[in-house]
Design a protein around this nucleic acid. Structure first.
Length: 114
DNA sequence: CGGTTTTGACCGGCGC
DNA sequence: GCGCCGGTCAAAACCG
């Protein structure tokens, strides 16, 4: 299941031949970890991290063909800071108002890896 | 009713 | 070889 993961695994074992899954980390200042960026997410697990006093939440896009994964983690140092990490690329339009999305971006700092 | 959520348990990989 | 960790999935329950 979930070819996306399988693909990455294969790449790792083989030696990274294809493009890597893009990873985008968003650091947001919010009291709630449930940030609606405009996509639909379904929580599939919650695990506690050792460097963090708070558990990390794992979310996945519920769109057909959309295998984007997202994980939300809070900074143990600042409970008001929420780190949202996006994995993969979306292949469908957002169902929320771009205005709202822009407003959210306005309050988040974007960090891009790769 | 459908969709979603929550917890627990399980598996694989890696280290020593 | 064994233990450990992280990560993911499953089922059940709940809500609108």
């Amino acid at each position: 299941m979930f070819g996306s993961d399988n693909e990455v695994k294969s790449d790792k074992i083989k030696g990274a031949k294809k493009i890597r899954k893009p990873r985008y980390a968003f650091q947001t200042r919010s009291q709630v970890d449930i940030l609606d960026d405009g996509y639909r997410w379904r929580k599939y697990g919650q695990k506690a991290v050792k460097n963090n006093k708070f558990p990390r939440s794992y979310y996945r896009c519920t769109h057909q063909g959309c295998i984007v994964k997202k994980q939300v983690q809070r900074l143990s140092k600042d409970e008001g800071i929420v780190v949202t990490t996006y994995e993969g690329m979306h292949s469908h339009p957002i169902e929320k108002s771009n205005d709202n999305f822009e407003h959210i971006l306005n309050q988040m700092q974007i960090y891009t890896s790769y």
